[in-house]
Design a binder for these strands. Sequence first.
RNA 1: GCCCCAUUCGUCUAGUGGCCCAGGACGUGGCCCUCUCAAGGCCAAAACAGCGGUUCGAGUCCGCUAUGGGGCACCA
Length: 491
Amino acid sequence: MDHPVRVRFAPSPTGPLHIGGVRTALFNWLYARHTGGKFILRIEDTDQARYVPGSIELITDGLRWLGLDWDEGPEVGGEYGPYIQSERTALYRQWADWLVDQGKAYRCYCTSERLDNLRKSGVQGYDLHCRTLSTEDRAAHEANGDSYVIRFKMPLDGQTTVHDLIRGDITVENSTLTDLVLLKSDGFPTYHLANVVDDHFMEISHILRAEEWIPTAPVHRQLYDAFGWEMPAIAHLPVILNPNGRGKLSKRTVGFTEDGRSVPVRLNEFREAGYLPEAIVNFLTNIGWSFGEDREVFSVAETIERFDLSRINPAGGKFPLEKLDWLNGVYVREMATDKLVALLGERLAAAGYRVDQAKLVELLPLIRPRVQRLDDVIEKAGFFFVDAVHPTLNDLIQKQMDAADTQRALQEAYDLVAGTDDFSAEGLEVALRTLSDELGLKTSQFFGLLRVALTAQQVAPPLFETMVILGREACLARIQAAQALLVDTPV
RNA sequence: GCCCCAUUCGUCUAGUGGCCCAGGACGUGGCCCUCUCAAGGCCAAAACAGCGGUUCGAGUCCGCUAUGGGGCACCA
């Protein structure tokens, strides 16, 4: 039992990685890195019907983006390859045939129509029809060239127990197990066969997979026993549930929170929404596992040092999206300036803004605590990178003010901004506060109308710093534009 | 329907029989700061699903019930 640790993540190439799969990959990776073992990526593409071209690239790109590197697998190779199941079909066939030769499996000639009818009549599993075929009937089918599948002979009585590293023993009555298909009529293996054969020949030491696989664990135990192979240690990770409490998130295309907000499910959706890989990793680590010491925020290095199976919580949980938002904000606040500038610059550029890098560096302190997801930069700083803004009259005119008051205040502000010698945040603040008093306005009114004039937003970063970064000319132009708006619009 | 897994604040979790009239975090509410919004600081409300056992003692062990989830394919 003291094999070197070799764990694997074995997704099917049916599209982009979903967040549940990412969490499974992450835990496997953490376990490998913690133990100094190997993390293997294996592609389980045995269902030709569900194969989506390009999926493998999507999966590898996603893992790399998160920083989950694999020691063996597609693109990196390894001694146990190939790591794509469709390239290993001869192996599966060989071992399926071996089981038939040993009398532990059999050819089943049942048509899909017969199987459908069986299911419709309420039969669970397979009715063992071909298990008990006479030698003559079998020969007849062969002579006829009938297509067949290979089914496993499940024990009819007794019990099967599998030890789960985080749940303890799981025991089922063998009578509830069925003669599952190992090799399909198209010559491809089913998940069960391919998985067991590969885990054995790739010398996988620990299987860490999602909870939804628990029912197949006893089935796989039987398969290992039939082959006479040692079964890897196994642990089933809790599933991540949809926040609205209906079903697991992993399988859904869209999840929803209680207030109806849609929850991203695929990894690329998180990426597009402006979540950082570091935040996603930290976040996912906190679902079903906890760092301890009452800590919620920790680095990957710290996690690797501490990660172990004994701290895994067996209960499934809902996806706490709000916590991800918060955590992403934490990482945004801690990120190195040049890196953050690059990321935010990309977002702005993608949204069509002409980004001035130097200006972005300058204004970063203003928006950093206000950005949670990278996309927020557009709302917080977009107005810095346009030639003109377009406030509405309604936003411009503050509470308890009319157009004439507003016009006068703007004119005074214009004169001040145009004439002041001290165009610094401190200087502007002192001068504008004084002016606000002289005009008999509350600062919330005066600063509010200036904010709208300069940014076309009611909510924006601090006013005076904003003015400095905007520059005197831009400020004057925008104040003038606001004045023009007041004149041009009939009251 | 059958089988399996789980069950601590709204949510993610700590808790491995006495340190728990249950700790942290997100979220929520209040206060402070304040030119708006954040960030930050302080404070507050908020949970051991229920019932039986075992034990001197149970959130922690056992059973039943309830609830949630998963699985019952020539899909993984």
